[in-house]
Amino acid sequence: MRAVWIIASFLTVVIAIASCQTAEDIEFKRYYTAGLVEYQNHCQNCHGDKGQGLAALIPPLTDTAYISRNKNMLACLLSKGIKGKITVAGKEFDSEMPPAELAPMEIAQVLTYVGNSFGNKVGLISNDDVTRDLKNCR
């Protein structure tokens, strides 16, 4: 009987530690998982399930330097679309990306997903970040 109590209390402690996430962790995961679904619905056809892009037609999302350098520009790129030449992963791309039909919150979710997948690690991009960035679009 005593052994059972010891095991039970030990398990309780383990579970308590495992589920002990910070509020930021939970917030990040909420954005990230919602962003995965947005990515599959709006981005994956062109950019691929691994962010690999398509040859010289569609740029990859695996250029971690590009993503982190342009972190504050990404919301505008999604919202306004891209026309003209851009250089990604050392290659020049000249095709059009149509504006994403997404609300700021959805843009934040998909950017959090992309920004922390395919080798990228820029952390949470929140609704507030996106709302601020969208005001500075060129």
Binding site: N45, G48, Q52, L54
Partner: peptide, 13 residues
């Protein structure tokens, strides 16, 4: 084509 073609041709490659 903005929809399924990029996926199709990524696979066709």
């Amino acid at each position: 084509c903005p929809s399924i073609c990029p996926t199709m041709h990524r696979n066709m490659l």
